[in-house]
């Protein structure tokens, strides 16, 4: 039988064959270790403990160089932080407000509606403090890299003390197994006991990387849980409706066939 479907399969197979034999010369991205994430899959949710620990890692480690400009403190309410906790976190930051009645700008403690305060006033200041490199904003990092969560996890645990002998390291760069080109300006940010977890979890490098990636995955797609919950309901509804439509179609066409 040569139905169009069979032909389609043949065509696709031909292309797939072509696809698996990539021509030489294309620089392949390094392998990234696949991890099991609480937020993957159809019913995935962000593990709340990991989120809290990840926030702690971000605030105590990453935040000294990386901004998180799209996240407001109030957003933490979506993942189980109480208004008092949010208030307490916000008040640890100072934001500029004003002008006041005298026309002066002034500093005040942050409110829940304020965003996380960036570590540097502007790009130039950030570069000046980081040997000319610009630490990127982390709000969308997980979506802004291919296979984002696994990539970032691999990057965080992927530092190697001694670069392979055939690699000539540039001044101020660090060797990383996962980073494209392997030379990264960021010093290894995480290590054993880099933080002391509030919930008593042992702060291994692996645990820290896992937690901060979970936190950043939430920061990049805060709608994820609502999206998946709604998606399951919508698809179930559509499958039922479509089955009914098929039955009606069969019924109506029965006098033609």
């Amino acid at each position: 039988m040569s139905t169009p479907m069979n032909k389609l399969l043949i065509a696709v197979a031909a292309v797939a064959f072509l696809g698996v034999a990539p021509p030489a010369g294309a620089a392949e991205a390094p392998e990234v270790p696949e991890q099991d994430w609480s937020f993957s899959g159809m019913f995935g949710t962000f593990e709340r403990g990991a989120l809290r620990r990840g926030l702690q890692v971000y605030r105590e480690v990453c935040a000294s160089c990386h901004s998180l400009s799209l996240i407001a403190f109030r957003n933490l309410g979506d993942v189980g932080f109480s208004p008092d906790e949010i208030q307490a976190i916000a008040e640890e930051y100072e934001v500029e407000d004003g002008p006041d009645d005298e026309g002066e700008m002034f500093m005040r403690p942050a409110k829940a509606s304020d965003r996380f305060v960036p570590p540097f006033a502007n790009e130039q200041a950030a570069r000046a403090s980081n040997n000319g490199a610009l630490p990127p904003d982390l709000s969308l990092m997980i979506k802004a890299r291919k296979n984002g969560a696994n990539y970032l996890y691999g990057l965080l645990i992927g530092y190697v003390e001694e670069a392979p002998e055939d690699v000539e390291m540039m001044e101020g760069m660090y060797y990383n197994k996962v980073f494209p080109g392997h030379q990264i300006a960021m010093a290894p940010p995480l290590f054993e006991e880099a933080v002391e977890y509030a919930d008593g979890t042992e702060a291994t490098l692996d645990q820290e990387a896992h937690d901060v990636v979970t936190f950043l995955a939430w920061a990049a797609q805060p709608e994820l849980e609502e999206r998946k919950r709604l998606g399951v309901k919508v698809l179930l509804f559509l499958i039922v409706l479509t089955a009914m439509l098929y039955a009606v179609k069969r019924k109506i066409w029965s006098d033609v066939h």
């Binding site: 159809m42 979506k143 802004a144 890299r145 291919k146 984002g148 999206r227 998946k228 709604l230 998606g231 399951v232 919508v234 698809l235 559509l238 499958i239 409706l241 479509t242 439509l245 098929y246 009606v248 179609k249 109506i252 066409w253």
Partner: peptide, 30 residues
């Protein structure tokens, strides 16, 4: 009309599966 509507149902299942479960499938991380 019924045949098209049934086809629409099948299409919506595929379309919304992407929207809800792989929304960035066709997009570029950059």
């Amino acid at each position: 009309t019924i045949k098209d509507t049934f086809g629409l149902g099948v299409f919506m299942i595929v379309y919304l599966a992407f929207v809800f479960f792989a929304p960035d499938f066709f997009g570029e991380p950059d």
